[in-house]
Amino acid sequence: MKKIVSLYSVAILLIIGSCSTNPFTGKKTLALVSNDQLFPMAFQQYGQFLTENKVVVGTAEAKRVEKVGMKIKAAAERWLTANGQAAVLQGYQWEYKLVDNKEVNAWCMPGGKIVFYTGILPITNDEATMAAVMGHEVAHALASHGAQRMSAGMLQQAGAVAVSVGTQNQSAEKQQMWMQAFGLGSQFGVMLPFSRDHESEADMIGLTLMAVAGYDPKNAVIVWERMSAKGGGQAPPEFMSTHPSNETRIAKITSQIPAAKAEAAKFGVVFK
């Protein structure tokens, strides 16, 4: 097992030397992959996705996606510039598309490529509720969550190699036991909580962005209430999910609304 300890020591040194800072929270974040490496790959995948799916153009909904996206982008630029973080925006190429797909989903690729599916439009049926989801997606991009997930995946793979090497002299049965234990432990103890933390962080940052853009952050609660009603209680237990439960999100968002409004007030945006 000394080999495992040695390999993990190397991994720890890599982590210490490969950190960046979240511009919104000031927290140190994992960054084994740089934006210069990640953005070109993301842009290529995004371009391919658009060629393989039906992009909706010219409709009122498609125009709303574009309008809200531009307002959230402008709010992010205002906040980051005012807080001395304008350099974070380097390399982003913002784009907002509506795609014909019944799935209730929206996503953002690293570098600012954002897609809303038509399936989420009943949930985001006006600018304010759409801004809640758009702010969340823009937050994922600017907080570099994609790079962090990729970095975490690389470490998980390295950990699996370490376990394999460290147990190679044991029986196949014991080696398999160690690998299974590592797989379950890293997935439920590290990767899934890591993903849920990202979702909660994007919720919090997104509240600030939508508020600075002039949208009342209470509309984020409306979004998740609608999500909860549509889900019908079929979601897996929170500890098995990449996302917090709807109930957890609603509670956290509700508690964070006053702070988002206070932040918006610094930019002259005041809500009743």
Rank of each mutant, 00 (worst) to 15 (best):
L14I: 03
F194R: 08
G268W: 15
E66C: 03
S228W: 03
V56H: 00
G69Y: 13
P40R: 09
I205T: 04
Q148I: 06
V57L: 00
F239V: 11
Q90I: 00
V57A: 04
M154P: 12
V165K: 08
E263T: 15
Q44A: 15
V165I: 10
M130K: 06
V212L: 07
N125Y: 06
V65G: 03
T124N: 03
K113I: 03
G231E: 11
E127P: 04
V65I: 06
A265M: 11
L184F: 10
R226P: 02
T254L: 08
V65R: 12
K54F: 09
K218N: 05
L50G: 01
A260E: 05
F239C: 06
Q175V: 00
V223L: 10
P236S: 11
Q168N: 10
I12R: 04
G58I: 00
Q157V: 08
A143K: 02
M177Y: 14
A132H: 07
M134C: 01
S18V: 10
V221G: 02
T242A: 14
P236D: 12
V138Q: 12
K113R: 08
L80A: 13
A260C: 09
V68L: 01
E66G: 01
L207W: 00
K54N: 14
K27S: 10
Q148L: 04
H198W: 03
T81C: 13
K113S: 04
V133E: 11
A106T: 13
F43D: 07
A264W: 11
D36H: 14
T25W: 06
V161N: 13
C108L: 02
V270F: 04
L155G: 05
A172K: 08
E77V: 01
A62P: 06
A76W: 04
G166M: 09
L184G: 05
M70D: 14
T29I: 06
Q168W: 07
A62M: 05
V10S: 02
H243F: 15
A229I: 15
A259E: 11
S9C: 04
G231R: 13
F116C: 07
A75V: 04
A181N: 05
A160P: 09
N219S: 07
T248F: 12
T208K: 08
A152S: 09
D203I: 07
K261D: 13
S241E: 12
K73G: 00
L13N: 14
A75N: 10
I15T: 02
V212Q: 05
I205C: 02
K27R: 10
A86M: 09
L155K: 12
V212W: 05
M177R: 12
A213W: 01
S195F: 02
I12P: 06
A158L: 09
Y8N: 06
A181D: 01
Y215P: 00
K28W: 12
K174N: 11
M70W: 14
E247K: 15
L32P: 03
M134Y: 00
T208E: 00
Y215K: 07
Q44L: 14
A260L: 09
G231L: 10
P244Y: 15
H145I: 00
N219G: 01
F39H: 00
C19A: 05
G153T: 02
V55P: 06
A229L: 14
E238K: 14
E52V: 04
A131Q: 06
E77W: 01
F194N: 13
K252C: 11
K230I: 07
N219I: 02
S6W: 07
K174F: 08
P217M: 01
